[in-house]
Computed example of a mutant assay.
Amino acid sequence: MAASRPARDFAYFAEQTPVGLAHRGGATYAPNVGRENTMAAFAAAVEMGYRYLETDVHATADGRLVAFHDDVLDRVTDATGALAELPWQEVSRARINGTEPVPLLEELLETFPEARLNIDVKAPAAVRPLVETIRAHDAVERVCVGSFSDRRLRAVRRALGPGLATSAGPAGVAGMKLLPGALTRLLHSPAQALQIPVTHPVAGRPVTLVLPRIVEAAHRLGKHVHVWTIDSAEEMHRLLDLGVDGIVSDRIDTLRDVLAARGTPLTPPNPQPPDTPTP
C-alpha cells in the first residue's frame, strides 16, 4: 500500500505550527462554562483569534447533523433523550445551559467561513449526513475528520476521497506505541495527523504516547501531532518543547497566552509594508 499524502499537501494544515484548537469552543474558558459546543462558545474562540475549532457530530432521528458531544441531551441541556431517537424539531427546542440552542454543523461552516473544523464522528448514523454536509458546503479543504471508530473513519474517507484530511483512529494510535512494526503500520495509514492524549490506557495501566521518538517518527512521515485535552500552561510548554504541532484545549485563554509567549500567537501580526525607497 502506498504511503499517504503528507500533511503539508492539505490546506487544512497550512497554518504555521504550533496551532491551537478550541475544544468544543473552549469548554472551561470562564465565559464558556456550561455552554460547550454552542455558537456563542465558538464565536468567543474565533474572536480570540482561533482558526481551528474542535467539535463532535451526531445525527438526529431524521438525519440532521448536530455539533454536540454526548449521545444524549441530559448532561448539558434542559431536555432529555437520545439524539438518535429524537427529531430535529424537538432537539432544536433544547437549550444548552438553559440558554443556547444546539447548533447544526452547517451553522458552524456558514457562520465561521475562515475557520477550520476538527470533527469527531461520534455515531454511525452521523457518517452519511457528515459527508453530505461537507459536500454541500464545499468544505473538504476546511475540515479534518477523526473518530474513535476506525469503521466510521474509513467510511468517511471512502466517501470523500483522498482530498480529505483525517486523523488517526484508535488502531493507528495504539499501533505507534504497542505493535511490532509500528512505524510501517503508520506509514501505511491514510491519516495526516495523530490526535492523541498524553497517555492511553493499555491492559489497565497508562502508557505514555507523546514521547520525543514518537513525535520525531510522525514528522519523518509527514504527519502532524496534536495532543488533547491540555489545560495546564506548564504541560502546554512541555509538549511544545517536544515539538508537537498542535494542542487541543478547553482553556483557550491559557493556550492563547502560552502561544503568544512563545512567539506564535493565534493571530499573527500584520506584516509591515516594506520601506519606500527614497527618491
Rank of each mutant, 00 (worst) to 15 (best):
A40S: 12
D250Q: 04
L108P: 01
D78S: 03
D241W: 07
A27L: 14
A139K: 08
P180A: 06
P101C: 09
P129E: 02
G175V: 07
R24C: 05
A123V: 15
L194Y: 15
P206H: 08
L211K: 14
R116C: 01
R256I: 02
V76E: 09
A43H: 04
G26P: 03
A84N: 13
P162T: 06
G222A: 06
L153I: 02
A84G: 10
E36A: 12
E85W: 11
D231H: 03
T133W: 00
S147T: 02
T38D: 08
A40Y: 01
V143F: 00
H224I: 13
R35C: 15
P274E: 09
G222N: 04
R5C: 03
T278K: 13
V57P: 00
P87R: 12
V244E: 12
A22M: 08
Q89M: 13
L186G: 06
P103V: 13
T77C: 08
A41Y: 04
T278L: 12
A67D: 00
A79T: 12
A7C: 10
R5S: 06
D231M: 08
L86V: 02
S92L: 08
I96S: 09
P113C: 09
D74S: 09
I119L: 04
G163R: 12
Y29W: 15
S232Q: 09
D78L: 07
A182F: 14
V76R: 14
T80P: 00
R93Y: 10
P201V: 10
G49A: 07
P113M: 09
G169L: 03
L194K: 08
I252E: 05
R151V: 15
R135S: 05
P101S: 08
R35S: 14
V202K: 01
C144R: 13
R128A: 07
M236W: 06
F112Q: 05
I247F: 02
I119A: 00
P268Y: 07
D62T: 10
R151W: 11
I252V: 07
D150H: 07
M39C: 06
R185H: 11
V140I: 11
L178E: 11
Q89W: 15
N37S: 11
L239K: 04
V156E: 00
A217Y: 03
A11W: 15
S232I: 00
E216H: 07
A45R: 02
D74A: 12
G98A: 06
A139D: 01
